[in-house]
């Protein structure tokens, strides 16, 4: 059986004041189709960096290792090609686009990936129907569609907007980078529902989180613990409970 995502020995660094600073130091990770995996790990261990490298952010230098996504060399693709291929990243800090109407942005994005996937573009009516249904599920007001992308959104609204985009773009693999951070219980449940609604044999998720509560909703297939730029332990859902109870100390010792 073919893996959806296979990361092998991935090393990546960033230019920090003219010197390369290594952040990812040999990441190995496999996600089969239809599974939800979680990455947990202390602040600064490289979780966001991993998600950026997978999405194709150019500031990071991949120095060695490989990533295949649906059998293709992911590292060889432009960010927009990765998106078209079905990779979605819900940003830890969603970016503001002043003056860019949220609905227009969403429709442009949806039609860009549909075109690239050889699907018919959505016309104004079709799009409106789809987006109305999605916003309703996420308890979002229509007003948010009329505003500029993420401008003046509260933390919770930004995260919900990410989930809205994910729903509309129909990814094969969604990476959610701390999408649950800073959400109240109700918002957390809504976001979790948004992900759960997508669960199917054709949808996988890599969920970066610090909280047991989101995982309780999602029921992940596997948990990976990241420390100092590596996956240091992988296991079943019980691993998350252990972290919740004991913290990361023992894993950090392993990584040292």
């Amino acid at each position: 059986m073919t893996d959806l995502l296979k990361i092998s020995g991935l090393h990546a660094s960033i230019d920090a004041d003219g010197k390369p600073k290594e952040i990812l130091r040999g990441v190995d990770l496999v996600i089969p189709p239809g599974e939800v995996h979680a990455i947990m790990g202390p602040n600064g261990c490289g979780k966001s960096t991993l998600s950026y490298v997978l999405a194709g952010r150019e500031e990071y230098d991949v120095t060695s290792g490989s990533v295949t996504f649906m059998g293709r060399d992911l590292l060889d693709m432009e960010p927009e090609e990765r998106a078209a291929a079905g990779l979605f990243l819900a940003f830890q800090s969603p970016v503001e686009l002043p003056g860019v109407n949220n609905a227009n942005f969403l429709r442009t994005a949806v039609n860009a990936v549909r075109r690239a996937r050889g699907e018919a573009e959505l016309d104004a009516v079709g799009f409106l129907k789809a987006v109305r249904a999605a916003t309703k599920n996420l308890s979002m007001s229509d007003d948010m569609l009329k505003r500029s992308v993420n401008v003046g959104f509260s933390g919770g609204e930004k995260k919900r907007n990410e989930v809205l985009q994910m729903t509309m773009l129909q990814p094969t693999l969604a990476i959610l980078d701390e999408t649950d951070s800073g959400l109240d219980v109700d918002a957390l449940r809504i976001v979790a529902e948004g992900v759960k609604n997508l669960r199917s044999p054709k949808f996988s998720a890599l969920v970066i989180t610090h909280h047991q509560r989101l995982l309780d909703y999602l029921g992940p297939d596997r948990i990976h613990v990241m420390a100092r730029g590596r996956i240091v332990r992988s296991g079943g859902p019980e691993l998350a409970k252990q972290i919740d109870a004991e913290g990361y100390a023992s894993f950090l010792a392993e990584a040292a």
Partner: peptide, 28 residues
Amino acid sequence: SEDQMFYCRQRGLSQEDAVGLIVNGFCK
């Protein structure tokens, strides 16, 4: 910003589309 360009491209937009959207938003 790089952040804005990357965000747009992650959503499937080409660089030209991304600049077009941001510029048209700026001139609205």
